[in-house]
């Protein structure tokens, strides 16, 4: 989302140092929330969500003019008192970490998330793998041996890369819990099953960069094959 700042917020931004020339990276929260969200502030007045749609918002700004975007932007509804700068050291550390992971862990540096990519049909051969700390994965229908609607997996190929390069699956797939992954559930989607594939976006303090596959409608009956211990 693209927002415009109220005057009080602009004054607050102006009281803080810049992160880089003409911009600040900040955190703030809504009054009803406890969690802070990150934003990039341009010229102390135009605020852009720093989430996985950030590149899309920047394209919008480039296509249109800054004053026009500012004029059409929604008012920013975050607490002025909660505004704080995200330190440059944290941003820099994150970037270097990502470059290392890209090089040594074979992560993908950029690309859209699965839901932002078009649907395709499975080829009936490729395997999907769902990683979980839990044996009783709720998204697998063990009775009909299928993946339930609205579930994510990765590809077997990306899972193998994760294992081969001794990568951390919690970071690669940007999982919210730091519990150890114990199980790998194998699914072979049928040719008529639709899927969307993309790159895991950074989340929960993790870099992502693995492959994710989203099955809006789940998979056909008898496509769940087996469960294996993680890494085997």
């Amino acid at each position: 989302m693209i927002y415009k700042a109220y005057r009080s917020d602009t004054e607050k931004f102006l009281s803080l140092p810049e992160t880089g020339m003409g911009y600040q990276v900040i955190e703030a929260k809504r009054s009803s929330d406890t969690v802070k969200e990150k934003f990039v502030v341009y010229n102390a007045e135009l605020i852009v969500d720093l989430d996985n749609r950030f590149p899309e918002f920047i394209r919008q700004i480039k296509i249109s003019s800054f004053p026009k975007v500012l004029n059409e932007a929604k008012p920013w509804i975050f607490e002025t008192a909660s505004i704080s700068l995200v330190s440059k050291a944290i941003l820099l550390e994150r970037r270097i970490l990502s470059e290392n992971k890209e090089k040594y862990k074979h992560r993908y540096p950029d690309g859209k998330g699965a839901k932002d990519n078009p649907k395709e049909c499975a080829n009936g051969v490729e395997l999907s793998v769902r990683l979980s700390p839990y044996e009783n994965d709720r998204r697998i229908d063990f009775e009909k041996r299928k993946l339930k609607k609205g579930s994510y997996t990765t590809t077997e190929q990306d899972y193998k890369v994760c294992i081969k390069y001794n990568d951390d699956p919690v970071d690669r797939y940007a999982l919210p819990n730091d519990e150890a992954i114990k199980r790998a559930f194998y699914i072979r989607p049928d040719k008529k099953d639709e899927l969307q594939r993309g790159i895991v976006q950074p989340a929960f303090g993790h870099d992502g960069g693995g492959i994710e596959v989203f099955f809006e409608n789940g998979t056909s009956d008898n496509t769940y094959l087996k469960t294996e211990p993680y890494g085997e």
Partner: peptide, 8 residues
């Protein structure tokens, strides 16, 4: 309901 990521 759908997931937002693998397992969550």
């Amino acid at each position: 309901l759908p997931e937002q990521g693998m397992g969550y």
